[in-house]
């Protein structure tokens, strides 16, 4: 697991107020929405804000989120390829 994976898990826990969770509770390939982490549509919007705030990535099409926010692995890969900070 890279630093980015850990950093992402910590940010998600803090940003989405997942109070009772630790980074170790989130596996890299676990689905973030639905049966996995159980995030909802407002959480998806917060993740879009997180991408812009922390990594300088502005999603022009919110539908992109569906492909990016599949799992921590998917998010980390997208960030590596597109980050501006």
């Amino acid at each position: 697991m890279t630093n980015l994976h850990t950093e992402l898990k910590e940010s998600i826990i803090e940003q989405l107020n997942l109070e009772d969770m630790d980074p170790a509770d989130i596996s890299n390939d676990e689905p973030l929405f639905g049966d996995g982490l159980g995030l909802d549509s407002i959480d998806a919007l917060e993740l879009i804000v997180l991408l812009e705030k922390d990594y300088g990535i502005k999603l022009t099409d919110p539908a992109q989120g569906k492909e990016i926010f599949v799992s921590i692995n998917q998010m980390a890969q997208f960030i590596e390829e597109n980050r501006t900070k």
Partner: peptide, 10 residues
């Protein structure tokens, strides 16, 4: 003032 928070807005 920085990034409007959707989770606060709701």
């Amino acid at each position: 003032e920085t990034f409007a928070s959707p989770s606060l807005f709701v």
